[in-house]
Simulated assay, not measured.
Amino acid sequence: MSEKRLISELDSNKLRENALTSIRLGAEDFERSRRAPADGGDPARALSAVRNLFAGVLLLFKYKIATCVDNPADAAALIFMPPEVWPHGDGEGGIEWLPVGKFKSTTIDVGTIQKRFQAFGIEVDWKVIAKLQECRNHLEHLHPATTLGEVADFVAELFPVLRDFIQTQLGEVPAQILAHTWQIMLLHHNFFVDTTQQCKDAWTGVGVPEGMIPWLDESRCEACSSSLLSPAQLSIDANYLVDRDEGKFEYTCVACGHTGLIAPLMIDALNEAHDYDPRDGEEPSVEVCMQCDRATYVIYEQICLWCAAQLDYTECAICEERLRQDDQDNGGLCSYHAHTYEKAMRD
């Protein structure tokens, strides 16, 4: 396809139409994925819901970019993937940077959209977009039945991004341009926000270690990956406490009804966030606490997030190096200086 044809075929209104269609299909897929099979529900629609919703938002972003200029040729240059720019000798001992090849038939990706937005002063919460993109990529590799809760989280987090973008950047009313689609997303978002707060309030006073509260928020249901977890009523009735009865205290998933132990979920969330690859020379930042024997001791903070145990000696008295748990028997010295001191004493 020639560059001239690419330019002539760009229709910003078509971008808008395709964006709204993708968002509508995504919302309908999401609604159907949550219905019971007897009512025409299909869990497999969960993945297509995420695909369509994310694609629709990106198309809406591209539409905004295309409308920043008046000339269709300029709009095409902004929307289609540009040729690479390579250095060339200028014949006088210097270099000049020139495009190599022509515009591609594919449109710009997320990274290039972000650059275009920066160039035109278009604001959007890119941290949320990156999180949604990661979620979309993650869901591509999972079975739909195990991701319904994560999809629900995805839709709830997408809602404010879409709402704000339509209002502030397009200058339109979301309910008008999205119609019934907007009502589907609005109802779900409101339910999600309200239920999230109810779940958070329910964990107050049941013995969640203070340092683990952020990781309670990051915990996900083992069955459906939802973040809507509340303390199981049976555990509350039995007067269990999370910090005292970690092998008994259970959660109940509001999204799917699954129950399971909450402590392992919190500990796993902490350790997944601090995952490392020793092949890249990385070192662990979380280890097993020598006081409570749980994998909740954060090395760089020198504290256990579960039992709040701290070190007697935090830095070497000689070199001021940060000390670890296994340095505590050295009387305030790092392993090197403790060894040096012992050697000197023997000599």
Results as ranks from 00 to 15, higher is better:
201 D>T: 09
340 T>K: 13
311 L>C: 05
3 E>F: 08
138 H>N: 13
73 A>K: 04
66 A>H: 01
175 A>C: 05
226 S>R: 00
191 F>T: 04
280 D>Y: 15
247 G>D: 15
316 C>P: 02
253 C>K: 01
93 G>I: 06
95 I>L: 12
305 L>H: 03
97 W>R: 11
110 V>M: 13
333 L>I: 11
136 R>T: 08
302 Q>H: 07
57 V>M: 14
345 M>H: 14
23 I>F: 05
317 A>E: 14
332 G>Q: 04
125 D>C: 06
138 H>L: 15
334 C>E: 02
176 Q>S: 15
172 E>L: 13
316 C>Y: 12
271 N>V: 10
236 I>F: 07
193 V>P: 11
8 S>A: 10
18 N>M: 10
218 E>F: 12
210 E>A: 04
137 N>H: 12
237 D>H: 14
287 E>P: 07
122 I>P: 08
238 A>L: 13
195 T>H: 01
13 N>H: 09
74 D>Y: 11
288 V>Q: 07
292 C>M: 05
92 E>N: 13
27 A>H: 00
205 G>V: 02
318 I>W: 03
295 A>G: 03
197 Q>E: 12
320 E>R: 11
258 H>M: 14
337 H>V: 13
53 L>F: 04
73 A>P: 08
289 C>H: 01
199 C>D: 03
61 F>S: 01
231 P>V: 04
238 A>K: 11
323 L>V: 06
155 V>W: 02
288 V>H: 07
289 C>N: 03
285 S>V: 15
182 W>K: 00
262 I>G: 04
313 Y>T: 05
4 K>I: 10
47 L>M: 13
52 N>Y: 02
326 D>C: 11
241 L>T: 06
156 A>Q: 03
108 I>D: 08
201 D>E: 06
20 L>D: 03
115 K>L: 15
248 K>E: 14
99 P>G: 03
70 D>M: 11
51 R>V: 11
20 L>S: 06
35 R>Q: 09
229 L>M: 07
64 K>C: 08
252 T>K: 11
291 Q>V: 15
337 H>T: 09
270 L>R: 01
161 V>M: 12
281 G>T: 03
215 W>T: 01
305 L>A: 00
311 L>Q: 04
151 V>P: 00
63 Y>L: 07
108 I>H: 02
23 I>W: 00
250 E>G: 02
253 C>G: 01
226 S>F: 07
278 P>D: 04
237 D>V: 15
334 C>V: 02
257 G>F: 11
247 G>W: 15
272 E>S: 12
170 L>M: 05
192 F>C: 04
302 Q>M: 08
189 H>G: 06
241 L>C: 06
317 A>V: 12
309 A>H: 10
330 N>D: 07
121 G>P: 00
140 E>C: 07
45 R>Q: 05
65 I>S: 05
324 R>I: 13
112 T>D: 12
227 S>D: 10
254 V>E: 05
247 G>R: 14
229 L>D: 01
286 V>Q: 01
111 G>D: 08
28 E>F: 10
163 R>C: 09
210 E>P: 02
2 S>K: 08
50 V>G: 01
3 E>R: 09
92 E>P: 02
108 I>A: 10
187 L>F: 09
185 M>F: 05
201 D>A: 10
22 S>V: 03
170 L>Y: 06
293 D>S: 14
127 K>I: 13
118 Q>N: 14
142 L>S: 13
32 R>V: 10
